[in-house]
């Protein structure tokens, strides 16, 4: 019985080690995926890309520069 118990514990440890290894691999894959998504987000934020998309896809033109006008009450 003791022998059976020892064998069972060893098998459980082996299984856990393999699970840990698998989870480690998953973590690496998720980190890689995360980095790729961060990179894609940064690329989409690039001002040159935004301007290009605005012009070509949406047909927008650059806005006139803002001019500040001071409004005084009573006039």
């Amino acid at each position: 019985m003791l022998l059976v118990g020892v064998v069972a514990v060893n098998v459980a440890v082996l299984r856990l080690n393999m699970q840990i290894e698998e989870l480690g691999q998953q973590r690496l894959e998720l980190e890689a995926r995360n980095a790729l998504l961060e990179s894609q987000v940064s690329s989409t934020l690039a001002p040159a890309r935004i301007e290009r998309e605005a012009r070509t896809r949406l047909g927008l033109v650059p806005a006139e520069e803002s001019t500040y006008v001071e409004l005084r009450p009573g006039r």
Partner: peptide, 19 residues
């Protein structure tokens, strides 16, 4: 070791590692 990311002041990544 993963190489650190370089962000601009607003947290936009300018240099990062890809797999």
């Amino acid at each position: 070791a993963r190489r650190g990311t370089i962000f601009d002041r607003n947290g936009v990544p300018l240099a990062l590692g890809e797999q």
